[in-house]
Design a protein around this nucleic acid. Sequence first.
DNA 1: TATTATTCTTAACGCCGTTAAGTGAGAAAG
DNA 2: CTTTCTCACTTAACGGCGTTAAGAATAATA
Lengths: 202, 202
Amino acid sequence: MGVRERRERQKEELRQEILDAAREMFFEEGYENVSMRKLAERIEYSPTTIYLHFKDKAELFNQLCDESFAKLALRLEKLQKRLSRDPLAFLREGLRAYIDFGLKHPHHYAVTFILAPTRGDDYQFQGSAGERAFSYMRGAVALCVAKGELQTADIDATAQAIWASIHGVTSLLITHKDFPFVPKNKLIEETIEMIVRGLQTR
Amino acid sequence: MGVRERRERQKEELRQEILDAAREMFFEEGYENVSMRKLAERIEYSPTTIYLHFKDKAELFNQLCDESFAKLALRLEKLQKRLSRDPLAFLREGLRAYIDFGLKHPHHYAVTFILAPTRGDDYQFQGSAGERAFSYMRGAVALCVAKGELQTADIDATAQAIWASIHGVTSLLITHKDFPFVPKNKLIEETIEMIVRGLQTR
DNA sequence: TATTATTCTTAACGCCGTTAAGTGAGAAAG
DNA sequence: CTTTCTCACTTAACGGCGTTAAGAATAATA
């Protein structure tokens, strides 16, 4: 009577097939340029089939975003363990990792942090893997303050200011490809150092 | 023989009527939610008529963006004159003005700095009013460095890092309306202070 | 073999930006 | 005064989109 099980397995397989194709296509062409019809053609099913596995295009994509951000969260977790003795280094490395991640997954980053909210989608930052990643950074700031390496009157305000700044670099580098930027790494380092120096105890 | 003149005047009037309606609608509903058809209905012409005045939707919107950014540039110019004696104050006030502008014209800001480049549009940052506004900031940084109030090895890198950071605050505040931010002004001040402290000579 | 689930497709709805072709009013030319 | 021409404007369509209602096909159960 393993029928049910096999069916579920097959369903899961197709679901994965959709996710895999979508991941590739979104990565190559971006959210806006991948239509449900094109995606369907790629997996050789009718467009309607996708809707048997995902509520709509947004949900499908959010799934992929969460996947990616979970990876970032994992990376930050490892960093934290490795650098738990030196919170300032953890903060610095964490910021680098965050920006790095954005540049490696530009479409995912764009949809979660740049595009998602501007559409009328029901995407919720709260509870997302994106939020989880952010909370690591807040933790890093708190640690630095506790150890007296950074000074601030308000940990949340500081953490958010930091986040805003690195989000700025990340998103500019992703979206403004034609801007005559200083070399990428220089801009990243400059920003990180500016942030750290701006908060360091004197 | 004022026929030609009258015709041109009328054409210009309709062009303005389109721009006015578009400005309102884009402001109220955002770029994606305003269709050429809706806009046409508002001005009581057929959709095709709009194309007699603007190449496409993107050009129409860029027109409006440039308008707004010209206003920002003007504001920065005035600031510069008023605070030419105190470049650090000019920088600070300029940053505030930039963020302020973004929050006052969220749709225009979003399209120029957040969305435009992610679409395949032929929008060029170079030569835009947006670039003009940015260059004021670069000037402010250069001035501060010249007067020995800020320290940096590379003015461009610094100016871009600053820009990235305030773009970050601005765009996060615009797009992530559901994020439990610290009060808006607090976040803005925190970021500006972090930036300035991070670059100040010690 | 007949019935029932389940999977998947066809066809459509109502949008979208954009364009080719045509209408109709008014100016210019005869 | 009539014809020609110009030019603002519209109608109708193309090919796309995300999504859904209704039905066909397939495979498991009775």
